[in-house]
Each structure stands twice: as structure tokens, then as C-alpha cells.
Nucleic acid binder design. Structure first.
Lengths: 224, 224
DNA sequence: CGTATTCTTGAGCGACTTCAAGTATGGTGG
DNA sequence: CCACCATACTTGAAGTCGCTCAAGAATACG
């Protein structure tokens, strides 16, 4: 519809140099952090608290969210093993974070990271690229929220499949309520939509949180 | 419907003397860009195109947006005078940008910015902080999209008032359709809601795009 | 001054929510 | 290992907010 390619004289940059899929940041020996275990549903940090650390999920999974005064909750993102969260420019967190299940988190001091970035351009660039990637994800999330319920669920399933599929199925760590709050739907709509996908053989349940994707192309079409 | 004209080459002669509002980034003499004029509804860059530049609005206003295959459009953000957009980590833009009205844009090469950031930790930090601020805004936008129509409009009005109120009123540069696509509503709902605010003396129209906020606390309460 | 565009208004409809049970599931102590 | 309970998930029926379709009014522009 609107895509036309534009002629340019400057060759495209080497992508690999800029985008590291799952960034090696925090693998560097000289950035030292501590690993901390968190039980299911335990808060890692709260909205409004001073942001002194940055976090990397070693195993388990995490949700970040904002709540409105009347209790409505918007989950801004899920973070799975290997992913980094808590990067914020302000001195305080603008959202809360909780462990979805038993999780191990690597906790790194912000100031240590900054000074590392200061002295090392490569680190600084990675830090920025990571934040920019997060921004992109957030924008896609907003795009998700204008879609229909079926489309949102389809997009969610494809996303989760890509991030944590193994042995032919997807094992969701989060509850229906979490999914609902991520997709801006009610828990009933999530449940009903999943049931309808199951009845149409688009997916197959092996327990309520273990799902086999049987018809990806249909999900992809819904993903518009 | 929306005309698409496009730049192919960037003229070198013009050099901007930049006066700015917000971030001091791009005020530095050694980052050189060129100012370009854009007519109303003209595309600045398109989704999927190589991202070679970063942009700063000198005057006028800009919308960035994504479109779904069936034409639904999500405006991800509005950028007003002094604000910076187009910062992306990937080699290509993940959204499109258009001038809302006659706008003047400062266009800066990405690579120049990166090398500046490389050699100057302060620049690198500003670049990151700017991206992180954008992320925060995007997350707040997602939060907006779970609210009711009235709440979304209230939040929008307060946001716009803060960013461009003058002489006691807000002069909106964007159409009702733009507002609708930003808030995930239809144009009719936007219009109806504004009318109801007006009837309740929460706001007052001085022309369809010129609005006086008469009852901010009510708008703030709606902002939950 | 006429035409195109933008904005408003109305009526009916539909997707998702709300309210209300009912059914699995999983963890715990006996 | 089973019985129990709490939690998580599903299903149904009715309601509602925002959408769709359809005109009509206001505004901008040549």
C-alpha cells in the first residue's frame, strides 16, 4: 500500500555490527553483578522506586507492568531467560517488575554500567541498541492493542513460540490474567479465544499452559 | 488520499543555526545537519527504508505511524518543535514519518552522530537518555490504549496542553483522524467525546482545532 | 462563490466486557 | 497416596461502549 523503495547512494550499514540479537552486554567479566533468586509473584522493583540497578533474567520469567489508580493493570512486557530489563534514563522506575515464576536474576549496578559505557564506546553502543530495541518492541505492543482479540492472541502466540518454543510445544509461564493484562483484554476473552482456536485446530492444548501450534500460517494471517 | 513526495538527495549548502527547546543534543557545533522544508502530509521517511538520518523538528509538527495490511493505522507519536525522532537501532525504520503541517526539519546523518558518540561519552549518554525517554513515552502510550475513550481524550488534551499551550489555548496541528489513530479510536468517537467535554464546559472550542481547557482537574481525574 | 475536505451528529449493531457459575489443577497435610 | 482447599481456568447469558454506516454542517481553499 504505502511501501515504495527509495534510491540512495549510501550503502546500507552492516547490520550485524549494530544489532546483536541477544546482546552480549553483561557477559563481560568486568561488569560485576550478583545473582538473586525470586519466588513466584515476588516484586523485583516497584514503580516510583529509585532505579539503581539493571537486571538480566538468568532463568525463569518476569513481567513489568503499570497500574492505574482503579487497579487496571497494563503489563508492558514479559522478559524471559537471557533478556535484560530495568533500563531507564530517569532516576526512578516508571513501572514495576515481578517474577512470574521462580526466577534467578542477575542484578547489576547502574553506575557501574554507566562508567563502563563511559570508558568503552562499544558498551555504550550496546546499551543504546538494547534500549532502542526495547522501544521498538514497545511500539509493536501499542500496535497490537488496536487489533481485534483474535489478532492479539494470534500475535501473542507467535511471539511466545518464537521466544520459548521447545520440543514442539510452547510452555507459557504466565497466567491467563497476565496474558489478558498484556493484551488489553479480559481473562474471559483470552480464555474464549484460545478455546475457539483449539476448536478450530489452530492450536492444541496439552494442559492449559502447554500449547502446540498446529496452524501457524493461520495465526500469521491473523497477525495482519 | 495522502500524497507522497520524497527526498532523494540532501542539499549540502544549507546549514542550520539551531535554536531549541528540549534536549541539548544536536546543538553542538560539530554535529552538522541540513534543514529541510516539508509540505503538509509529505512523507519524511517510510517504514522499511534504510535509517540513515536522525531528525529534529525545528518548526511544524510530525507524526510517526505504522500501518497494518488492511490499512488500519497506529500513530506511534507526535513530534513538535524542538523534539527529535527517527532514532532506531536497526538499519531500517520500523515506522513511517510524515509532516502534519508545513514543517522544517533538521536532518542529521546517523553515522556522524555515532562517531560523535564514540568519541564523546557525554553525547553517547544523551543519545541513550533520549531513546530511553522515548521508550517511556511509548509505554505510557500503551497504557493509554487500555483506557476508556473519555480517559484517552482527557490524557491527550493534557499532554498537548503541556507541550504546546500558549495564549491560554491549545492549537492542535493534527486532524481528528490523526487523534483517532493515535488513541486507537474512530474519528466519530473522538468528535463525540470532544463535543461532550465541550457541552460539560470541561473544554471550550474556539474553532475545531483551537481548544481552551476550562476544567483541568476534571481532565486530570479522568487521567486516572 | 463554489467545491473539497474536515468535522459533527444520529441510529443501529457488534465485539468485548461484566456478572455469575461451574470445572479443572496443583499444592498441602493427614 | 488421597482428601481437601485454594487458585486457575472455562463457559454462559446479558449488557455496554465504541464502531459502522449514513447524512448533514462547518470550514478551508482556490
Amino acid at each position: 500500500m504505502i511501501s515504495r523503495t527509495r534510491l540512495t547512494t549510501v550503502p546500507r550499514e552492516v547490520k550485524a555490527a549494530v544489532v546483536t540479537a541477544h546482546p552480549s552486554l553483561f557477559n563481560n567479566a568486568w561488569i560485576n553483578g550478583v545473582t538473586m533468586p525470586f519466588e513466584r509473584n515476588v516484586e523485583i522493583f516497584g514503580e516510583g522506586e529509585p532505579a539503581e540497578y539493571v537486571y538480566k533474567v538468568l532463568n525463569g520469567s518476569v513481567r513489568t507492568y503499570k497500574v492505574l489508580s482503579d487497579g487496571r493493570r497494563q503489563i508492558t512486557a514479559f522478559f524471559l531467560a537471557g533478556e535484560i530489563f530495568g533500563l531507564e534514563s530517569d532516576g526512578e522506575h516508571s513501572y514495576s517488575a515481578e517474577a512470574i515464576d521462580k526466577a534467578t536474576i542477575l542484578v547489576i549496578r547502574r553506575c557501574g554500567m554507566f562508567s563502563a559505557a563511559e570508558s568503552n564506546g562499544e558498551i555504550a553502543h550496546q546499551l543504546w541498541a538494547l534500549t532502542a530495541a526495547e522501544l521498538k518492541r514497545s511500539q509493536n505492543h501499542a500496535l497490537l492493542l488496536i487489533k481485534t482479540a483474535k489478532e492479539r492472541i494470534a500475535a501473542f502466540l507467535l511471539d511466545m513460540a518464537q521466544r520459548l518454543e521447545g520440543n514442539g510445544y510452547v510452555e507459557l509461564p504466565m497466567s491467563r490474567q497476565d496474558i489478558a493484562d498484556y493484551l488489553g483484554l479480559t481473562i474471559e476473552t483470552v480464555s474464549r479465544t484460545l478455546t475457539s482456536f483449539s476448536e478450530g485446530s489452530t492450536i492444541q492444548f496439552m494442559g492449559s499452559r502447554r500449547i502446540v501450534l498446529r496452524n501457524r500460517s493461520e495465526l500469521r494471517e491473523l497477525n495482519a
